[in-house]
């Protein structure tokens, strides 16, 4: 194939790809802060596009302009009109550049001011997000300890209600970034940061860690699920409940396996003996849509593969392989499916 056609196809492909995702895109805002960021993005885009076109136009004019052949030896001309003219152009364009950069600076500073002011006056919902290598711990704190909800990698929020996200990290620096909803916010070990968010439309918005944090940085995603306040309350009420005791004998056997083997050393299932805070809380595991921080859809097959050999799926993650007989595995999976 002709080289130029190849290049053209490649460029076209890139442009198509860039145009595709509505998911995880800062150009498809769903909250007031994301709208401010999007506005700033377009202001900078149009300004730089105009500057780019002007520069290219002048450059091509210089290329196209007929060259003078047989240039006579240069003679030194003092204080000529052309020289004055040229310095005026240079000074003018320098001034213009400064003004343009200043406009961008003012826009960007005011956007970040508005962004932090936009919601602070209202009565918010508080959510605690803790970054771990490589997953997100999400807590809905309550003054009553037994009303506190902890989950992982899935943040449910009601539509149209401001939410303050208090965030910190347990190990290294992570960064919380759901582009449809807000800009990035770093999570620092030993230090609390806060960010206000609000979603104005229902939907599932993907976010991910935006600060390189080790082997599985790329597999550290989360979802913000914005839903109607009624649905949100129903979800929260369900999550508050401890895990129901299984009735099915197979699931009962699964529960026994969970609480007597390696699982119990790291995971919590409220209502059982499992209470470690090292790994994600699994009290309502089956209600989540993904496992391993957005790496795989949450279904029986993926769960089985993950339990047996997580290192094949996410090499370097903290979960050890758990070899077990197929009978034990089936029982364990049956139990995990009851954690709705």
């Amino acid at each position: 194939m002709d080289r130029r056609i190849k290049t053209a196809l490649l460029l076209l492909g890139c442009m198509l790809l860039a145009g595709c995702p509505k998911q995880q895109s800062a150009l498809d805002p769903t909250g007031p802060q994301a709208a401010l960021i999007e506005h700033l993005w377009w202001v900078i885009f149009w300004i730089t596009l105009v500057v780019y076109c002007i520069v290219l136009a002048i450059f091509s004019a210089g290329l196209v302009k007929r060259r003078v052949r047989d240039i006579p030896p240069p003679t030194v001309i003092h204080e000529s009109e052309t020289e004055k003219h040229l310095s005026l152009i240079v000074a003018g364009s320098t001034l213009l550049t400064i003004i343009i950069l200043f406009v961008i600076l003012v826009q960007s500073v005011s956007a970040s001011k508005w962004e932090s002011r936009a919601l602070t006056s209202k009565n918010p919902i508080t959510i605690q997000v803790v970054g771990h290598q490589w997953w997100w711990e999400v807590t809905y704190p309550n003054t009553q300890a037994d009303q506190t909800v902890t989950t992982a990698n899935e943040i449910h929020i009601p539509v149209g209600v401001p939410v303050v996200i208090n965030s910190t990290s347990r190990d290294v620096i992570h960064s919380f970034w759901a582009p449809n909803i807000h800009g990035k916010r770093d999570l620092l070990p030993g230090y609390n940061t806060a960010v206000w968010i609000q979603a104005d439309q229902e939907g599932r918005f993907r976010g991910q860690c935006a600060e390189f944090c080790g082997h599985q940085h790329a597999h550290m995603a989360f979802f913000i699920v914005a839903e109607s306040p009624e649905k949100f309350q129903a979800w929260l009420q369900q999550q508050v409940k401890p895990a129901a005791d299984p009735t099915d004998p197979l699931a009962k056997r699964g529960q026994q396996i969970f609480t007597t083997r390696t699982c119990v050393m790291c995971h919590t299932i409220r209502g059982t003996d499992a209470g470690s805070r090292v790994g994600p809380e699994l009290t309502h595991l089956a209600s989540r849509e993904t496992i391993a921080a957005g790496t795989l859809p949450n279904n029986v097959g993926n769960l089985a593969g993950w339990i047996l050999d997580p290192q094949a799926i996410k090499p370097g993650n903290r979960m050890p392989p758990n070899p077990m007989t197929s009978e034990d595995l089936q029982a364990l999976l049956a139990y995990l499916q009851t954690l709705r």
Partner: peptide, 8 residues
């Protein structure tokens, strides 16, 4: 015993 994998 049985709670921590051997390599750990």
């Amino acid at each position: 015993s049985g709670k921590i994998p051997e390599y750990q």
